[in-house]
Design a protein around this nucleic acid. Structure first.
Length: 250
DNA sequence: CTTTTTCCCTGGACGC
DNA sequence: TGCGTCCAGGGAAAAA
């Protein structure tokens, strides 16, 4: 599933290929992608637009055009952007195709159809994202202190970052510092390895990431922990599968 | 307000 | 070989 490192990998790749290019022809084949907006309307809005920048905020890709128009893409579970110089022939689960002015194509595939494309005006983007996202974890604005501030009063576990099952609001300063550093290190390692390919994720060049090779517990229920040998346990937190070592991560 | 559950969606794994 | 069931999970929305 595309997490932040995967989305950053996609962003960096598309930035190299798309900035300065014009969207000559846009075809949206799945109406779920733009729902509730008519896909033909979105396609018509995008045609003729020239890309000025590709940014990212959280897991959102932000395609900015010279006109000020913005295309916000979220890959959700299985969304996949591929850059191709040989057309979009017979791709499975093809949901959209963008023909660029250099003759190449950006192909959007999505097995499970959770991904979204949303067109906004430039001045709407910050408001839209701010309502949905917290601080950007690799920016300077994200500090251990403001991480702590956001956890005050929260009683749920910190699973998002660490499989520590204590209430998130009870972390002291030292623990917040460790969590903060851990979040950044994990994200940076993921970006350096082009993301993790557990099943569907691929870079726009079609390559798999390698971060999954670094995972120590994910998907390894019952296997011995590589650090202490305790069998890895699986539980469910906030509706999501969660693996952890009961020896190292109590 | 916070937290939990349900929903969306498909394909792969598994049991019979 | 085939069919039913479960699971994966980001995020919105509904329920608690």
């Amino acid at each position: 599933m595309p997490e932040l490192p995967e989305v950053e990998t996609v962003r960096a790749s598309l930035e190299r290929k798309l900035v300065g290019r014009r969207f000559e022809e846009v075809e949206i084949l799945d109406s779920r992608l733009t729902r509730p907006v008519d896909p033909a309307e979105v396609a018509a809005e995008l045609e003729g637009e020239r890309v000025s920048a590709i940014d990212r905020r959280g897991k959102y890709l932000i395609v900015r055009f010279e006109s000020g128009l913005v295309l916000l893409i979220h890959l959700r579970m299985t969304g996949n952007l591929v850059h191709s110089r040989n057309g979009a022939l017979a791709q499975a689960h093809l949901r959209a195709v963008v023909r660029l002015d250099d003759g190449s194509d950006v192909i959007y595939r999505d097995v499970r159809r959770f991904g979204t494309w949303l067109v906004l005006a430039a001045d709407e983007v910050d408001t839209y994202l701010a309502a949905r996202l917290g601080l950007e974890p690799l920016e300077r604005t994200f500090s251990a202190r403001n991480l702590g501030e956001r956890l005050v009063g929260r009683r749920v576990s910190i699973k998002a970052a660490l499989l520590d099952r204590r209430p998130a609001g009870e972390l002291d300063r030292g623990e917040l510092g460790k969590l903060h550093r851990g979040i950044r290190r994990a994200l940076e390692a993921g970006i350096a390895r082009q993301g993790a390919t557990l099943r569907d994720y691929r870079t726009p060049e079609g390559a798999a990431g390698t971060m999954q090779d670094e995972f120590k517990v994910y998907g390894r229920g019952g296997e011995p922990c590589p650090r202490c040998g305790t069998p890895i346990a699986k539980t469910r937190i906030a509706g999501r599968g969660t693996w952890f070592c009961p020896g190292c991560q109590r």
